[in-house]
Design a protein around this nucleic acid. Sequence first.
DNA 1: CTCGATGCAAAATTTTTGCAGTCCC
DNA 2: GGGACTGCAAAAATTTTGCATCGAG
Lengths: 162, 162
Amino acid sequence: MTVPQPSNDPVRDTFKEFLNSKSLRVTNQRMAIFDAAFGMEDHFTAEDLLDKARAIDSSVSRATVYRALPILTESNLIREVDVGRDYKFYAANKDVRTFQAQVICTDCEKIFEIDAPFMEWYGQTVASKLGLEVVDQRLQVSARCPGKKNGVCSNEAIQARA
Amino acid sequence: MTVPQPSNDPVRDTFKEFLNSKSLRVTNQRMAIFDAAFGMEDHFTAEDLLDKARAIDSSVSRATVYRALPILTESNLIREVDVGRDYKFYAANKDVRTFQAQVICTDCEKIFEIDAPFMEWYGQTVASKLGLEVVDQRLQVSARCPGKKNGVCSNEAIQARA
DNA sequence: CTCGATGCAAAATTTTTGCAGTCCC
DNA sequence: GGGACTGCAAAAATTTTGCATCGAG
């Protein structure tokens, strides 16, 4: 429950180093977007991120958020979680070590992240049979709460988009 | 290489029966869209489908294609293949028996369908731990041709979107 | 200073929708 | 003949882009 001190945040420094290594500039807006992403409790959309980043630095624009997302993704500090909606979700890589699968509840829209370490092996096996090299992979299960009406779900996680 | 006779096509009849069972009407446009989908060699987008359907019945409109797609999906005659692009892909269920994973070549953009029968089991295992019931699942591997420049791929399958 | 980064607003893309006319059953 | 279906064009919704200005290094 303690508010992390940005100046002491090693991940924050990692991002700055990444920017430097790519000759990208460390701007207030980029750092606000970074802080917003790592302040998210859960998965978030570009629009969620814009709102939260603006709460930190009101000058952040939508365009800058969209321009920052590929940078954050490339740096491996956040990951894209495409669950087949019209828009994409993202999540901060806080302490992810193994491959994650997503279980998406179609009733409450909650996205659960599940460890699926065997996937690392699976993707390589399948790709190598085709002579290809794995770049990325995703495993997603859409599921519903049995006995629940659409829209109301028993999971205490009835908080879809942050 | 023989042109299938629509009147003898059992899958075509299945679609008509599906429409009847749902009290939906058998219109020229819907059948043209159906024929277009089953005439596709590979994965296709809504726009691809519109083009091909219009070649059969020039009166088919984009709106009707978009309205037909959920019907074809519900009938299980085609399936949605979301590979994380801005637009969705579809594929006719010609003779699919087991769960299919997709390997997407990031160089030639070709989508390979791979049998992954164990996924049926995997999804249920993971979902049941959360007390959920599987609705759908997808497993996708993005991979690239090693040694190829982006855009040119050695796979003879250098035909991305039909 | 210089050139990358930003904000704004317009544009681009894919999909959806309202409405008046059409045609299946 | 009635209501479902269709085409058209406008609308939605998300993401991208052009351009003048700003600011990090």
